[in-house]
């Protein structure tokens, strides 16, 4: 033991240095290893705080009671007089949505308007996308730029442009009168027609671009092969082109349908009081009626009825495309 002592002391000294060194290198290693968690954590917390948390808050408000106060809704948790905590859940807002025809009709109306607009966008966008794919490279780039360009200008102003065109004294009425089709101006603005035109006008690029991206990757010799095997153009289109462009059709349709359903600006500016859409109802419920709980309930209902099915559908599509196409 006695002989061992000095060496033991010496080795602890070395050990201390070793420990220090190990500590420093461990720290460095941790830094090397930690940057990855920083990369994940920062956007993660941002989304948790500013995306997920807000949903729980509107979920909470949607089951509260409306009050004429600030904020205009009741607390879920309340201390009663005898000191017990009581939870007040009210599904009144939801049953109100269900009972009042306005909300159901508006929801169905929005889905109908968005659905028809999506179909019209497809009918217009499909041949355009196809024509762009088939044009020579330089023209192709210019055409693509022309399709993307409106997107970089203001959405609001593009809708505004149609207010001028569709007005009673607007160019379309003028043209129709000049051509002798009508005698006096007809009401174009503030109608369903105006809303359809507005949606198609602003959303057709969203249909063209995914279709283009999909068609661009297609092997055009397949058309020649089909023709070579005796298929007429119409048959080739139905049996070869259409099935192969299906993913593009789905992608484009989703990009048009979802935002169109919740659209607020177009029905407000072009539909006036005559076209009710769910986004506009929500906006008005909040800004004009100050009924936060009902507005929240509309939002939650819209989320459950529109967004969730779409996300599930997309997920399924992704899985299928992973193994299929």
């Amino acid at each position: 033991m006695i002989i061992m002592k000095p060496t033991a002391v010496k080795s602890t000294g070395i050990q201390r240095y070793q420990q220090m060194f190990a500590g420093v290198s461990r720290l460095l290693q941790q830094l090397q290893a930690q940057w990855k968690s920083v990369v994940v954590t920062v956007p993660y917390f941002w989304m948790l705080l500013f995306f997920l948390a807000p949903f729980f808050i509107i979920l909470k408000i949607s089951v509260a009671e409306s009050l004429i106060a600030s904020p205009p809704f009741s607390d879920l948790l309340e201390w009663t007089r005898d000191g017990a905590l009581s939870i007040r859940l009210s599904f009144e807002n939801y049953s109100y949505l269900w009972k009042d025809d306005l909300y159901i009709n508006t929801y169905l109306g929005s889905v109908k308007i968005a659905g028809i607009s999506t179909l019209l966008c497809l009918l217009l966008g499909y041949p355009i996308a196809y024509a762009i794919v088939r044009s020579p490279p330089t023209t192709k780039n210019i055409l693509l730029m022309l399709v993307i360009l409106p997107f970089w200008t203001s959405f609001l102003l593009r809708v505004y442009a149609w207010m001028g065109l569709l007005a009673d004294q607007g160019l379309i009425n003028d043209l129709l009168i000049w051509a002798g089709i009508i005698d006096s101006p007809i009401r174009l603005l503030y109608s369903h027609f105006a809303v359809y035109v507005g949606i198609i006008y602003t959303y057709v690029p969203f249909m063209i671009l995914p279709l283009y991206a999909n068609m661009e990757k297609l092997d055009m010799t397949l058309h020649e092969a089909a023709a070579d095997l005796g298929a007429r153009p119409a048959v080739t289109f139905l049996t070869v082109t259409l099935p192969m462009t299906w993913p593009g059709i789905v992608a484009g349709s989703l990009l048009v349908f979802i935002p169109a359903t919740g659209e607020f600006i177009i029905p407000d500016l072009l539909g006036g009081g005559n076209v009710q859409m769910i986004g506009r109802v929500l906006y008005n419920e909040f800004h004009s009626n100050h009924d936060w709980p009902v507005a929240s309930a509309v939002a939650v209902a819209l989320l459950v009825l529109l967004v969730l099915p779409m996300m599930v559908y997309q997920k399924v599509q992704e899985k299928e495309s992973g193994s299929g196409w």
């Binding site: 509107i58 979802i258 935002p259 919740g262 929240s296 529109l306 967004v307 779409m310 996300m311």
Partner: peptide
Amino acid sequence: GRTLFGGMVSAPLVMPEVITGLSLLMLFIT
């Protein structure tokens, strides 16, 4: 939590603006 993260990151793309707007306002008030 990757699945949740992936969902949260892509969800705003399909979210109607009115919902995003309303829910964020409620967050700020809270």
